[in-house]
Amino acid sequence: MDLITTPLHDAFAPVAISYVLAAMGLNIHYGYTGLLNFGQAAFAAAGSYAMAVTIVSFGVPFIPAILLGLAASVVLSLVMGVPTLRLRADYLAIVTIAVAEILRLLFSTSFKKYFHARDGVSGFTGTFRSWNPFKDMEGTFLSFSANDLWVMVVGWIIVALVSTLVFLLMRSPWGRVLKSIREDEDAVRSLGKNVYGYKMQALVLGGMIGAMGGFVGALGLASVQPDTFNTDFTFIAFTMLILGGAARVLSPAVGAVLFWGVLSFMSVALSELSDIVPGDLLDSNRIGNIRFAVVGLVLMLLMIYRPQGLFGDRKEIAIDAR
């Protein structure tokens, strides 16, 4: 039974939601605008750290702390975008990944009074949990605790709202400009549009959505730790996006759910196998390695043979543009 229930559980759990939102942000960056942001982890990290630290160390109430988290992600977009958005696409990729690593190093080694190094920040969920309508629930529901359920309800509502927003925006003239920039920014420039400004707006919007992913993840784990936000975070979100199909509103959600489901299924199946396989060829660390090696392989194969993912339109995505 574990082969079915555990994957289902993992596919909808708070962690999965945080990746859905991260991938939705990337969809705006990469899917619609063609910006290569390889530092989505930085947005999630900046958002969740700003929220957690302001609550824990400065006693800021929950809602203003969330707004400060979003503000942090906006500032981060400016830091990344200002030097790079006028340059060729790969410069943005390099700078975003570099900024993400700088932030992670800062969080794990500096200002320990606020960031508490690798232990991370905890103790910020009080207000959020006090609003939990399920808090009197006995035991678990479908193996989710009351806290998980509350985070999931809020998280999936956010996913629905963000999806609606993206849907509306991408049908608007604004979305038309973004998609045109993805295809040929000089054409757009020649028609009098401020391409730099539009790219910056896309970077900010996608970054804010990534920060929301950070919030949901933080509330789900009840802590914010620097190692959550390594480069793998971004690349996993990328894989989900490409699995679902870039430039489709719902594909990040579908991609992420599928991804976690399959990953979790592999994990369960491999640990079942580990009883049969001799030695430590399938210890828990190595099972993790196998799973993520497969992720890498899948990302490569998707990109080569099916860049439009499961649901994308090959004609629509401009993977080959610049």
Binding site: L36, A293, G296, I319, A321, R322
Partner: peptide, 15 residues
Amino acid sequence: GLIAAMIVSIGLQFF
């Protein structure tokens, strides 16, 4: 394309 190849290289790195 180059961007697709770049993402392929990320997959290879992961792998």
